[in-house]
């Protein structure tokens, strides 16, 4: 088990390292940083001064290591637009995205797992077909269309919920639905398949043969085992959701890190962009690493990697 964990850790770290190189490249591809920092009216001499002052005249590998060292200490420099530390900007907005992602994930699990279980238990019936059709249809609706439709119906026409912003907990309801929607098909398919697999297994047949009620069999025995892969997927989905929240945050004008990154991109403010890329990737890598380890703990078959 230790060897497995260590191997996975090495992979996670090397992936993190590669992502950091990409993030660093993103920043340097955005233009001559010295010119951007010095401002459009700076004379060539001033630009050179900035270049030297910020160490931009050193070889790229050195600059990268220096940048990595600071990034590892959560120091991503200053935003070109706000002239404020990127870390401060991000930490202020992080809770919004985290909250949004967590609620959305909970919502999608609450809908998708029961739906998947139902579909498996009633395999081949109308319920199953309905659930699967719902999945196919769900995948075809773009997040932003759903978001706009939710605004029109629930915010503007019914006036139940706020249109935008993050002022109250109500503000999170519509965005979470829009974001969670996106994860439902994957979670549902997985819980359905997991359930189908478990239901065909011997111990379930034994339990049934012993005369236990079908509901009890499903809830007490099958669900517990079928849920393991769903937990792992949930962790991965959470990572995907944080990345996908950019569209939802834009539709609902929520000030999370997705929105921040989007605005930063359209303002050519790449210190912010690379920091968000790095942080989201870091969260994703950590989550999948943990999911692998937890999975391996629960299911020894997986430790052979």
């Amino acid at each position: 088990m230790l060897a497995f964990t260590l191997r996975r850790l090495v992979v996670a770290l090397s992936v993190a390292f590669t992502v950091s190189v990409i993030a660093f490249a993103l920043l340097h591809l955005s233009g001559d940083l010295a010119i951007t920092i010095a401002g459009p009216e700076a004379s060539p001499a001033q630009v050179e001064e900035v270049r030297h002052q910020y160490g931009l005249d050193r070889p790229l590998p050195i600059q990268y290591l220096d940048w990595l060292w600071h990034a590892a200490h959560l120091d991503f420099g200053n935003s070109f637009f706000f002239r404020e530390s990127v870390t401060a900007l991000i930490s202020e907005r992080m809770p919004v995205t985290m909250r949004l992602g967590a609620i959305a994930l909970t919502l999608s699990l609450v809908v998708a797992v029961p739906l998947g279980v139902l579909a498996a238990v009633y395999r081949g019936t109308a319920i199953d077909r309905l659930a699967l059709s719902f999945c196919v249809l769900g995948q075809a609706i773009p997040t932003f269309c759903l978001g706009l439709a939710l605004i029109i119906v629930f915010a503007v026409n019914l006036r139940w919920l706020p249109v935008s912003g993050t002022a109250t907990w109500q503000s999170y309801v519509l965005p979470s639905v829009a974001l969670g929607w996106y994860a439902i098909p994957a979670v549902m398919r997985l819980s359905r398949n997991g359930m189908l697999e478990v239901l065909s297994q011997d111990y379930i047949r034994t339990a049934r043969a012993k005369g236990l009620s079908p509901t009890k069999v499903v809830l007490k025995h099958a669900l517990r085992n079928a849920i393991i892969p769903v937990v792992a997927l949930a962790a991965v989905q959470f990572g995907f959701m944080l990345g996908g929240s950019i569209v939802v945050e834009a539709v609902f004008s929520m000030h999370g890190i997705g929105h921040l990154a989007w605005e930063a991109i359209s303002r050519n403010d790449f210190p912010v962009v690379q920091a968000v890329v790095l942080i989201l990737a870091g969260i994703y890598i950590t989550l999948t690493f943990l999911a692998d380890v937890v999975n391996a703990l629960l299911d020894p078959r997986m430790r052979v990697a």
Binding site: V15, A16, V19, I22, L26, L242, G243, G244, I246, V247, G258, A261, W262, I265, V273, V276, V277, L280, A281, Y284, I285, T288
Partner: peptide
Amino acid sequence: ALPVVLVAL
């Protein structure tokens, strides 16, 4: 690991 929408944008 790369957030696809963000990196694409």
